[in-house]
Each structure stands twice: as C-alpha cells, then as structure tokens.
Design a protein around this nucleic acid. Sequence first.
DNA 1: GCCGTTTTCGGCCCGACTGTTTTCAGTCG
Length: 646
Amino acid sequence: MTNDDIAEVFLEMSELLRIDGGDPFRARAFERTAKKLQTLGRPVSEMLAAGSLERLHDIGEGSVTRIKDILRTGTCAEHKRLRQKLPPGIRALLAIKGIGARTARTVFQHLGIASVDQLEYAARTGQLIGLPGLPEQASADILRAIEIHKSQGHRVLLFDALRIGGEVIDALKSDPAVAALTQTGSARRRKATCGDLDVLVATTERGRIVETFAHLPMVEHVYIAGEGRASVRMAPGLQFDVRVIPPEQYGAGMHYFTGSQGHNIAMRLRANRRQLKISDHGIFRLPEEKRISPGPEENDIFRAVGLPFIPPELRENLGEIEAADAGTLPALVEPTSLVGDLRAMAGKSRAAIEDVVARARRLRLSHVFVGVDARDFAQRAEVVAFHDTLVQVQQHSPVQVKSTLLLTVDAAGALNRPDDWTEGFDWVVARFDQDVPDDDEVRTRALTAAADHGVIDAWAHLSDRHEGKSRAGTPSAQFFEAFLAAKLAVDVDGTYHRMDPDEGVVRSLVERGAKLALASGKSDEGLRFATYVARRGWATRARVLNTLDLEGLYRVTRRGEVPAAAAHVPVRNDIAEQLKAGVLSPALRDRIQKFMQGQPDHEVEAGLMQLSDNPLQAAFNLLMLTGSPQVLPEESSDIVDVEDDG
DNA sequence: GCCGTTTTCGGCCCGACTGTTTTCAGTCG
C-alpha cells in the first residue's frame, strides 16, 4: 500500500462526503490529508513508526487512526460507511466543469445517475428538465461540459507550458497599454506538468486587452471573455487563461495567480489571524476593510504577514510558510550559481560533442561533462576513440571538456559493461535497468552491490519519470540510507520530458544531506529545468555540485583527489552581473534593445537567461524596470538571503 | 477534521461568475 493508495482513499472519502452533503469542512480536511500524503517523499508507514506523522501540519489524531486502519485493511470505517451510501463511480461527475457536489447529489437521488455516460444520456433524453436546483438550460450546459471533458488531454509538460506562454506574452507585450505581464500559475512555480496555463497582465485598458487575447491566432475556441479575464482553448485539451488587472494591483495579483491554492489559503489564514485580508486586489485591514497597501510588489504580500519573500517554486503549502516564519527558508540554488553541466548527453559523434560544448560556452559554463550511454560502446576500442575525440575538441574550446558514462545496473547489481571501461571517465552515473522491479528491497540491494564496484559517482532516474509520470514508487528510508552510505550524488536529469527524480525524492535526499549533480541530459535547456527540480526540492547552492569548480567537485565526492588536468580559470560574465544588479549603462541598454529586435548577442542572451527562462521577456522587463521603477521584473531578484547550510 | 501571536471552542480564503430560489446558492480557480 503506497502513499498514493492511502491518499486515494482519503480523496474518495472527501468527495463522497461532499456529495453526501456532510460537513464540508470535514471533507476539506480529508482532502488536505490526501494532498499531504501525496507529497510526503517517504513511505507513510515509516513516519508512523517514528511517531513523526502527527507532527505534520493538517494531519491530526483522526487521520493517524484512519491511516493505520487503511494500512492494515485497505479501508476504514468512514470509508466503508460512505461506500455503502454512494457508488464510488459517482465521483467521476465532479470532474465535469460546472458539476459540483450539489448537482451530483441531485441527479443521483432523483435519477440514480452515477457515471458520466449515464449523465450524458439523461441530458440528451431531457430527463434533467425540472430537477430541483437545475436551471432550465442545464442539459445543454452539461452536454457541452461533457464534450470538453472528453477532449481533455493529459497535463502539459513545463517545457511546452513555458513555450506557449512565451508566445502569448510576445504577442501581448507590444501593446503600449500593457504595463507589465508575466506567466503565473503552476508554470511559474515550475511544476513538471501544468493543468492549464495562466498569464497575468497589468494595464489600464482591461477590456481591450482581453479582446486582443481572445483574438490571437493560436486561440481555437473562447470559453469566456469578460471584463477582467478570458479563458480559451489553444489546442485540444489545452486551456489558457488570461487575467487582466489594474497596474497598482499587479503584485497582489501575481501572488494570488501564482498559487498554489493550498499556499494561498494558508497565507490568508495567517493574514486573518493578524486582522488582515489578502486578496488578488491587495491587502486590507479588518474589520473595516481599509486598503493598507497599494500592493504593486509581490513582496508586499509577504511583508504584510511578517514573512520574507517565498520563491514561487516553494509555494505548495508543504512547510514553506512555517520555514519562512522560523527564518529557516533555504536560499535556493540559482541558475547564476552554476559553473558546470555534469551530464550533457551527446553520444560518440564529434559533431554532437561539439554541439554540447558550444551550448556550455553560450551558457558561460567553465566545464561540461559530455555524456555517453555505455550501450553505445560494443568494444573497448570505441571507448578509447571517444576519449581521443574529446581531447581533440578540448584543444579548440575555452570550456573544460570532461566525460560522463551512463551505465545500467540489473537487479543483482551488475553493471552492463566491464568495470575497467569506466577508466578515463571523469564522472560515472548509474541507473536501474527497466527490468529491475519496483521493489524497495531489491533496489536497495542492487544499488549497494553496484556501488561496491567503486566506480559510480551518481545515480540517475530515481523516479523513472517520463512525460510527467513517475513510474517508480517513493523509496524507503532504508534505500535513502544505502544511497548516502554509498557516497552517491543524485543525478537530476533536466531533459524536458523527464525532470527526474521528482521533487519529493529530491527534497527527501537533500534533507538527509545528499548532493545534487544537475544534468542537461538530452535537452538544450536541460540544465535550467534540472535547476527547477532542485529548487522545488529545497536545494541550496551548497547542495549542488554544479556550483563548484572541478577541484571543489572532486574534493567533495568519492574521488577525493583532484586530477592534475583540472586546473582552470572560471569564466565570468560581467554582463550577467550588470543585468542581475539591474544597472544598465546606455551602451548595454542599446545592446539589449538590439537583441530584442532580433540581433544575435550571445553574451546578452546568456546574461538574460540567468535572470529568466525567457530571455526576451527578461529583456522586456529590464527595460520596463529602468523606465518605471515601481514595477518588478519577473522572477525572484529579491529572494531571501538566508545563511546557506554548507 | 484541524487548529490557536485574543481561542481546547468556534471558526474554517476570497472574489467572480452564473442563474434566478430579487438576496442567495453553487461552482470555479
């Protein structure tokens, strides 16, 4: 019984209780428990044994008792009671937009409807007409909502969410009435997948901007378009929302629309306790509801409730508010702190190797570890040839060119190539073979046996995440302990469809003292995406090996000794420093403007990319900032500066 | 069911939209 299985029972209880008309606050409490279980990062049975479960916020005595019952029997008394009253399939109705607990109860009580298909049939045959509480045209609305529901695809990968959001931002920002705009929602929190996409626009001409958005060429269908918002479909199953607010509410809006919902609720409860009210319109003193801050800056929201700025990646109501309150918020690793890429997959061809080296140069890295899969080598001689190629590439490169070998390990802990083939590689990364069962004991033994070869530096693909889905379960404490005992680093693969391991596993390992080795993997922008995972896993700079020069890297890993050839001069990007400080000389301003007009400028681009994932938007915001100082640029230039832990 | 910077009882985020039960309930994000 995994954490997700237990969470599912709580979610079912929550939804059935709502449909049954039970106490809505109780239903919400069940839902909070489910959310917490899904993001625990370690098996719940372990925390139960350690007595640490009930110390979690939102999990009380009642939940602990039920969790124990569910672990033992797969269910609990309340769960059984609700299942006797309602068929569990009825929950599917709640997934239809516009159908809530009340409507689900009505159609079940009067017509016995407990599935989407039954509801569709009833709507088509006019059976819904006259039901209490249902408006006249309910049938038409429901049929339309069911149609949308059926066309709904899976969640969008972060990579696509940022790309599509960037296109919308590009299309809107040229309008002179737009004072500021940014992508919000889960994309700004850098979640690996996003349900729908959001852009927030500050302008004095709200209605007109909504109109402009609704008529963009990529819009397929407009669901709603009102005064302050529009909701459209951009592709089958891809919903895109725009929120348009007055400029003086930009900061409050940014906080509200970035979410997560759980974080917002916790923040507002905290505000209430201080006789304050937070909404997307600003901050108000209770009870008279007097506006106390114009709220132009997101940070005003945090300041009002006595907290330092919380980076968007942490806003999941998973302890970030408590940590901020206690002054223990981590100073998250920033892209500007990275000096190396520890696994840029290239393969054996010289052209591909030169590509990843050129990319490292564009990113102003001092070193790049060219990655190759051990399966690409059939004979030892090919390994030697690969190293020869690297030496040749190195001769023409200011970037230090190193090498990473990616090995596969079977259930017995055997490597898929002889140990001595790893000689000459500067970093060796292992991962489980597809055939290794998702069984914690098997994996712990295999990992330990593999590490005993003494050649492995890091372990990759711990969650086996593809397209947003983690195929491996949450490892146990015993697995994590074996991992740390083996002195392995955590390889974080930033390939856009992987972002593996997931942030829960990263956070568990970071909490236990593990170091992260960020890898661009197979993506051009993989290093950036790996950094997002690290940040969502609460990693500070001190936990990320990519912030160290080669000497430092070897000193803190199992290799210990520094290879003689590792000496180098770090590459500095003075433009990045200027951009980060927000101080633009006229000459630099000019270069940024030319870059925005399409003139290539790698130095400016690299500097901008360290500020934001969208260099054009960063440029736009920077120029905006120097023009009108009250508007903040996107992203956390004011991240709280707490002592690092290393 | 959970929680506490006025509380171990009495509350529980907030605003917008929709339709209609002209003063509110249901739903959503």
